[in-house]
Design a binder for these strands. Structure first.
Lengths: 232, 232
DNA sequence: GATTTTCTCAATCTTTAGATTTAAATCAAA
DNA sequence: TTTGATTTAAATCTAAAGATTGAGAAAATC
């Protein structure tokens, strides 16, 4: 890997000019990377990405004019395959989670050693993702938490459980945007029968019309039984 | 940490009896952990968790009778705070992703060194999550991919972009289950005006009724702009 | 075997939804 | 300033949705 180092262009974005100089010095002295540019502005940074096409951007996440996360998204949107290493002062789980979610390839703290920074850059340039183990732990806490909340929300007193199997069929066709005639045709029953089912569904779900029924179904995990079997 | 080791109970679940013996020997010889039990069956494993309440379960993920992922979910549902370390023969990104998603605290390959296994157990017992860097990379690939797909799906020719801001307001109220009167009241405009807006929405979204409009909105990322500002 | 639930269907009626046309006021852009 | 887009509104009409009652047949449950 050492032989490619001098070819890799790096862009530095940090609102602290001193910190910027420090990192630049570190990287030019200790590695063979080519610092394509440095800037304290997120907007200028995005333009520099377009101009110099760096392999990797090392970006501070709390910038004055523009949110660092938003800047990451915009760089991702360019579709240049630019790698992004977040350099942050905060080990906030939610921040880590969001940064990784929108496309960061790594996240390290400003307090870490210079050797660790160089290692992170090497890993990311090699096509990997890099999170120090402490931050990785915090990420997964948040990651699992977000899924636990989804499940719990659809647990307590789900009125969908009171539906009969036929009513479930009718409701599914409702959630596909069918009207009475469409449902009747697909289930090979009369339109009046469908009306009966739909009215029973309304009473059981305590709603007044089909739109509310469909919304209740979607918000309370209707159809997740099938998806759960496939995806979990 | 060393002084707590002997107190921590471990449960081993692996369909390969030989492998089971090997791990048990390794852990009893090289560490002070207490092997609470070993089994080749996922169902028995779940019962053993209830009985012995181990701090950690080391589980093979491809079991004969029951899916390992399902077993993890059931152990999680017990709410005993049992930590789970997945021991798998596969470094499939999707498998890693799903295991971590449903509650695993770590994922290591069977090919790894015994020292790494012991390290992983220590980390998890200390309340952390553990993924070897190679698997961590694969996890994040899949993690980001899943979000990219969500966005791309709602990109190409999104009819929602043709809506005016007022129509967006009306549509949002539709997606909350309001009827004409409700929308008119909330926007302080007449019911007939709402009808006009709704009809324009139908034409722009190429649908025939409000349920289809709501479904189109939900399936094409309506409201994500607002959520994006908050959560990303 | 009796009971209950579920599924089926019809008739009737009221309300809401949706289509269509026309049009005035506002506002931004050409 | 005029053009075009947006927001507002009314009138009218048809179609669909929703509420209610009643009732027969089949299947499950007791």
């Amino acid at each position: 890997m050492r032989e490619f180092k001098r070819k890799s262009r790096i862009l530095l974005v940090d609102d602290n000019a001193e910190h910027l100089r420090g990192i630049k010095e570190l990287l030019t002295l200790e590695t063979g990377y080519d610092i394509a540019g440095t800037t304290t502005s997120a907007n200028i940074g995005i333009n520099l990405v377009k101009k110099y096409r760096p392999e990797i951007v090392i970006m501070d996440i709390n910038l004055p004019e523009k949110d660092g996360l938003q800047a990451i998204q915009e760089i991702e949107k360019l579709g240049l395959g630019t790698k992004i290493l977040v350099l942050s002062g905060y080990d906030d789980p939610d921040l880590i989670y969001r940064a990784m979610k929108i496309g960061a390839n790594g996240y390290v703290l400003k307090t870490m050693s210079s050797a660790q920074l160089v290692y992170a850059i090497d890993e990311i340039l090699a096509g990997k993702y890099y999170l120090p183990s402490a931050l990785s732990s915090r990420f997964f806490e948040h990651f699992q938490q977000s899924f636990r909340e989804e499940c719990e929300a659809s647990d307590e007193e789900n009125l969908l459980t009171y539906l009969t199997s036929r009513e479930e069929e009718v409701l599914e066709l409702l959630t596909q945007g069918n009207n009475y005639k469409g449902i009747a045709g697909k289930l090979f029953i009369s339109e009046t029968t469908v009306k009966t089912h739909v009215n029973n569904i309304f009473q059981k779900l305590q709603v007044n019309d089909r739109t509310q029924a469909v919304l209740y179904a979607l918000n309370n995990g209707f159809g997740k039984k099938i998806r759960a079997k496939i995806s979990a």
